[in-house]
Amino acid sequence: MSKLPRIRFIINPVSGTRSKVDVAARVKLNLDHSKHDHDIVYTDYAGHATELAAAAAADGFAIVVAVGGDGTVNEVARGLLHTNTALGILPKGSGNGLARHLQLPLKLDNAIKALNTGQISEIDSGTINDVPFFTTSGIGFDAYISSVFAGNKKRGLKTYVELVLKEVRAYKHLPVKVTINSTELETDCFVMAFANAAQYGNNAYIAPLADIRDGLLDVCLVRQLDFVKAINLSYCMLTRQLANVQSAEYFKTTGVHVQTEQPMMFHADGEYKGKATEFEVKLNPLSLKVVIPS
């Protein structure tokens, strides 16, 4: 029996914008088989990737590679939290938030080749109401957009921005009570984003100063948003700048507690997760091993 480190590739066959690519053939061609043994498995239902990843970690695989978009990456990473098995990513989605933050190659062949020479690092993760996230989570407008975006056949940044500009006028801010850094704050909330990484995906930077290894969440609070502020915030997201103080406020913290009178939508890594009136957001330092370019 071979004693080479093992890699498991978990493929979401319906993920993202390039689902017709023969990933198995590209892995066979580009992976260095003198360094790794590998197998390839496919997901059949929501949550299946987490099960497959956890099973691989328990079986001693060195790396489990998520092949898909941000949702697939989130599922695989959830199965690897607090284990010795590292997450690899072959980006195949429309946003690819974690892959972009880690500066992984976005072209499939190059991403596979990067596994041959990559090194293992550790990153933070977060939870919102016990749901893990690795790039961002949030309540309010961005969660609403996530719910709408999920049902849209068109993907990509252009579609996302168009949705934001279309829906921003109709969405109303809500009052919330926030506890952050031991300070209680009663405020309006149009959107509150909790960023472990700097961007949502598509190089849209909601928290340009976020560091995925610093043990802190970067919180972006938008109290109220009109059309002019939406343009400013969108421009800053695309140019990796902090929005002006009239548009957004930023905090660094290890955790946030939010209470709302009316149920608010929330998301984790861009995936809509439902509604709640209370949110507990926590940061888990260096809780996930990842493969990054050497």
Rank of each mutant, 00 (worst) to 15 (best):
A25I: 00
P132H: 09
A193F: 00
E280H: 13
M237T: 00
V131R: 15
F9R: 01
Q199D: 01
F279E: 09
Q241P: 10
G88M: 04
K172L: 07
G201A: 10
E249S: 12
N196W: 10
P5E: 00
N196V: 11
I292L: 01
E261F: 06
R223H: 12
R240H: 06
R100D: 11
T85N: 11
N152D: 15
G215Y: 06
P208V: 01
D269L: 05
D124I: 01
L233R: 05
F190G: 02
L225Q: 08
K107N: 13
D130F: 07
R213C: 11
L174R: 15
T277H: 00
E122L: 10
H101P: 03
A195C: 09
P293Q: 04
N129A: 13
T83R: 15
G118F: 05
A24C: 02
C220G: 07
L31C: 01
S234E: 10
E249D: 10
E162S: 15
L238I: 00
N30D: 10
T43C: 10
G95K: 08
V73L: 09
L288F: 00
V176G: 12
S147L: 12
Q241S: 12
T136P: 11
A150R: 14
K275E: 15
V131S: 15
D44F: 00
G215V: 04
F251A: 04
Y272S: 13
K166D: 14
L286V: 00
S287I: 00
G138L: 15
E184F: 06
A207R: 01
F134Q: 13
I180D: 04
K35E: 05
G79D: 04
G270W: 03
K107S: 13
T50N: 09
I212W: 02
V176A: 14
D211S: 04
S34W: 04
T117D: 14
S121A: 10
K282T: 09
I145F: 05
A193E: 06
E122H: 11
T253F: 01
L115N: 03
T117H: 12
E75D: 11
L163R: 06
A57L: 08
F134I: 07
A276P: 11
N284F: 05
N84I: 08
